[in-house]
Amino acid sequence: MAKINRSRDRDIEIPQGSMGDIAFLLLLFFMVTTVFVQEKQFWVDRDRWPQAQSIERIPRNNTATIYVMKNETILLDDVPSKIESEEDVYVKNALIAKKAENPEIVVCFRTDRETKYGAMSDVMRQLQDAETLVVAFEAQQKDQ
């Protein structure tokens, strides 16, 4: 029977020299593709939200966020507006368009805790007009 010579005189190694490059490439990829939410002057800081105990998580993909600031400025889709009369229907029109796009939309309020309720009431009236009835009031978790 013929013998097959196996040459075992060399060590087999997987080259690991480029591992660092791969890891840095991954890091760069995530750095380049990460998109930060940019809302500069209209941001209602998290510590300005009201506190609540019975909060629930809301799936992000179906939400539209309305910011209501202490000075009663309303921000939807980066467009600031105020509701001062019956003719100010920007919120209503924008929400009708959103509802047509996604019938399951949830409107999230990020409101400064010291905002007067009148401003919120006006916005909610427009929500009812636009038939976007599911709302969520964003709040910080209160300690038990």
Binding site: T63, Q128, L133, A136
Partner: peptide, 14 residues
């Protein structure tokens, strides 16, 4: 991540 957490309510229809 910016997770939405809040009190959910359904407003009555007009």
């Amino acid at each position: 991540f910016d997770v939405k957490e809040g009190i959910k309510l359904v407003l009555p229809a007009m």
